[in-house]
Nucleic acid binder design. Structure first.
Lengths: 293, 293
DNA sequence: CTCGATCGATGCGCGTCTGGCATCGATCGA
DNA sequence: TCGATCGATGCCAGACGCGCATCGATCGAG
């Protein structure tokens, strides 16, 4: 069987065309080098070098083998280097799932921070609802997920990535658009765009709990999943809505955002979750990066 | 430093995800296999496999290294195979120089024969005059040359590749075009297209010797280098010419070829020449192939 | 809860292999 | 003709890799 040390020996001799100099380059003496070449020639069943006591020349087989040997050595070198980098968390690919709403503000900051900290790491991003992210995490098709709480699966671990207040989205021509702040009570019997109880369950429950606590009952005209769809209806003056603060970054013309005053403030939370048994160093890097954002 | 046996061990374990089965596949026992993996992990400074007594799984570094290891092993395998083939003269590249006239009939037959006998060998063909071939042979830019005699350089060896008679090229409307054969004496004081004494020296000297021997003096209208140029002038009824038999293959309309009767028949010879110190097995194959053509 | 089976890790001893030293044989130039 | 150069080879010591026996952890059966 072939052997890397034989390849290194051959390349050295083929480049130097001199056993003594090649041996010096390889930090060894000439006799074992001669033997390594002989072994390689036996393994390949081919004379690679034509040597007299005055000269060393490549044979046709040697000329054909030299670039291959150099290529193999170079590949091994870089593969080793890349693997070291991956193990140290400085290279590789992190497949990251995320919910649509996290892309408004948090995800871009995360991507920029990641690229600055770990320029050789590829982030493979996939938008999914939290329920799908759970499944993809467990099956190993993504390495980490930005999802809404609760993250309760026993095989998963999570860390809070973000917590932001809810704000009120108001049509620009609405009377409340001139208020500094809006209280929950203002929403009572107001036209209201709510979240779908199934497909946007986290937001739905959050908003519902907040309204129930205050005994407030807005007039729910629509139940939607996507925040940008909700804002589109707000802009059309169909009603008010409660959205995470990051939605302001969408810069929706005709919609203004007002702080919401509640008895007990609710925070919209986003968690990064990953499989407990995955020890990818990039996950550690990801979590470590969250503090700086 | 990396080692092929470590790569083979790692690939086996990574594919089996079981040390015992991998060891069986590698025809070894499990303990040294475990150690080889440990050494590889130390060399790469990376944990490649996460192992408990119940399961073996790849780490992120292992996942990134596995395809590289497989690729390196595959490359080594094919490089070894190709080199064996080259050494056996069944693969590789033969850079062959040839004179223009040999391309009329001999070279195509040679190429076809070569391809049939050695389908994995590439023939790199370059047309050159004999003088240039000599230079390229000595400098190693071609491996063999089809050239005109004499091949006298001490560093070169040669073998006769072809010997063919000279024939007379006659315009179709010429009185001699109806003869069965033509003797040298017929050429006396005839309009005649000759070879250039410098650029087509071999043909010039051959024809001159033949004419001198018979004391024949044709009326030389032109001296040219290329046989197809000479035939073009013959077609234009400017005169007769002596050309190698293979020139009939050019199928020049308006030119007929007649056997030439001489006292001492001259043969147009073509030699294959190569450097004495080159032991490329393809040269042997080339020379061996000449007999069958 | 215990016991046995499974599986990777480790201690140990032996055989082989590799590397270094000394030397040989061939070649070439002074 | 002699000495210098250079690759090949004989020989020996140290290291390395392999296999055997065994350990320790884990999990499932009873």
């Amino acid at each position: 069987m072939l052997d890397f040390s034989q390849l290194r020996c051959f390349v050295a001799v083929a480049e130097e065309l001199h056993f003594g100099r090649a041996a010096a380059r390889l930090n060894m003496t000439q006799p074992p080098l001669s033997r390594q070449i002989q072994v390689l020639e036996r393994v390949l069943d081919a004379a690679l070098l034509e040597r007299t006591s005055r000269s060393v020349r490549l044979t046709a087989a040697g000329r054909s083998f030299l670039p291959e040997a150099q290529r193999i050595l170079r590949l091994a070198e870089t593969a080793a280097h890349v693997t070291r980098q991956v193990a140290a968390g400085r290279a590789g690919t992190l497949r990251l799932g995320f919910t649509a709403a996290s892309a408004y503000d948090f995800l871009p900051r995360l991507v920029i921070g990641f690229r600055n900290a770990l320029p050789d790491v590829t982030l493979a991003l996939r938008e999914m609802v939290s329920r799908d992210q759970l499944e993809e995490l467990l099956s190993g098709r993504i390495d980490a997920a930005l999802m809404r709480p609760p993250v309760t699966h026993p095989d998963l671990v999570c860390a809070r990535a973000l917590a932001e207040p809810l704000v009120v989205a108001v049509p620009a021509d609405h009377p409340l658009a001139r208020s500094e702040v809006i209280t929950v009570r203002h929403l009572h019997e107001m036209p209201f765009i709510d979240y779908a109880p199934h497909d946007a369950r986290y937001f739905h429950d959050l908003v519902q709990g907040l309204l129930d606590e205050a005994g407030v009952r807005p007039r729910v005209l629509q139940q939607l999943t996507q925040i940008h769809s909700i804002l589109a209806l707000v802009r059309a003056s169909l009603g008010l809505a409660l959205v995470p603060e990051a939605a302001e970054r969408l810069r929706f013309e005709g919609v203004v955002f007002k702080p919401l005053v509640t008895m007990r403030p609710r925070l919209v939370e986003l968690y990064v979750a990953w499989r407990r048994d995955r020890d990818d160093p990039l996950i550690g890097a990801l979590v470590g990066l969250l503090d700086g954002l």
